[in-house]
Design a protein around this nucleic acid. Structure first.
Lengths: 241, 241
DNA sequence: AAAACATTTTGGTAGAACCAAGACGGGGTA
DNA sequence: TACCCCGTCTTGGTTCTACCAAAATGTTTT
């Protein structure tokens, strides 16, 4: 039963960089290394941990891959206290690969539809006044941007974003951001026109109305058709199979 | 407007390791580097790419962090063709951090409940014969394991796993595996007894029945109470706030 | 044929050195 | 005084060499 577990308390004596990673990670989480501050120089760190620069660099790379450090090519790494967005952000590179595989985008989009169907159902059941007014406001901005295809996309995302905020679960907004960033390359260059914006706005309004009426089935239905339609736009922009 | 974008086709001239990463990544995806095979030795690679070992090591570390290579401490890296499980697996380290934060496990568990509520709804609406029989089989194994608390957990997971398979979306099984691995530390050491196993089995049966009867609301309700109850067990095992 | 041993290979670490680009400071000019 | 230019220092990125320990491999012994 007690197979080899990599608990944080055990050095495990495998990689020297692990100890450094562990230390720095603690410092970041505990606030000793303040958020948005610059990590000490590699040479400072190698003195501080009394190890070689090789180990330090490896540790920094590891932390960067975990999202605890933001390391631009020739700049000092920036300390980033992790959030749920950080987690999802770090998978981006792999997801991009997955999306290039056969059926990748379809699967991802289907998962989004699945999530948002649940979201609107819950919204219809449990949205409070704040949620409703937030939706209303987002809807208004959405309407005002119908003529402006540049900003319409943003107001569109913002409307959906409100839905992700309703469960008061910090994971969901992070998922929303992740979906947006992952699908943007395929979604962003879609053909846009005030007519289509109008259609999308109408869909949003239908969702909003269903939520107002506390009708989860109608809300789910409205959202499903909304996303399906929008998806058809995308497939029609690219080559349809 | 045209800010610097880091497309994959551009070398970008930032890090030398990026080129190596790109090359090896292509070789893995194209199958030139066969899955489960061993990566060439670092010294071979540094000759092949005519660069220093440092760069090679950095590239290997990057690919390992992306899940394309499985690099145990002192062993040759193993080539791993990426899947959706790979993606979710690579976030594990960050998620573990998140779970230690205040309300972390609650948020994650709530998201799981959310997902599975949707799953059982869809199952009730669209499960076909194969799905039903798979559920039935999983349920049978679950029943047989009631007396054996060792294996009951596995059959429990397996039952839920069937639900994740019904949408025929490869992302969902990966999510299931991720949930299991992330929650296992908190879930696994839960107090278990045949009585509680009996309760869980009854819950599964209720879900199955509701799906059979094509009643999404009942299925959702059954699942929600099931997970809530199980969650209470967990909180009672640990210190409840 | 299996086990024990010797050798080679290979990943992990150290350390010095170099380069190029960012950060910094000082001095000159408007 | 305020601003800009330029030299210097700092620092991350890279190369190279060397060494160690453990894994992998080959050889000998039982």
């Amino acid at each position: 039963m007690s197979h080899s577990n990599d608990d944080e308390s055990a050095p495990a004596e495998g990689r020297a960089s692990d100890a450094v990673v562990d230390q720095i990670q603690r410092q970041i989480l505990s606030g000793t290394l303040e958020n948005d501050s610059l990590l000490p120089s590699e040479r400072d760190l190698m003195e501080q941990f009394s190890t070689s620069r090789t180990v330090i660099r490896e540790a920094v790379a590891t932390l960067a891959s975990r999202g605890l450090l933001e390391a631009r090519p020739r700049f000092r790494p920036v300390v980033r206290k992790p959030g749920y967005d950080t987690a999802l952000n770090s998978v981006g590179s792999i997801v991009q690969l997955m999306l290039q595989q056969k059926g990748g985008i379809e699967s991802l989009f289907a998962s989004r539809v699945f999530v948002e169907r649940g979201l609107v159902r819950d919204a219809a059941l449990s949205a409070n006044r704040e949620d409703i007014s937030a939706l209303k406001e987002a809807l208004a901005k959405n309407k005002n941007a119908i003529a402006d295809s540049e900003t319409f996309y943003e107001t569109d995302m913002a409307f959906h974003g409100v839905l992700y905020g309703i469960p008061r679960n910090p994971i969901f907004p992070a998922i929303h951001i992740a979906y947006c960033s992952w699908l943007k390359p395929h979604w962003g260059q879609m053909l846009r026109s005030p007519e289509r914006n109008e259609v999308n706005y109408a869909s949003h309004m239908a969702i909003y109305t269903a939520i107002l009426e506390r009708d989860p089935d109608a809300a789910e239905e409205a959202l499903a058709t909304h996303l399906s339609t929008a998806w058809e736009y995308v497939r029609e922009t690219f080559g349809a199979p």
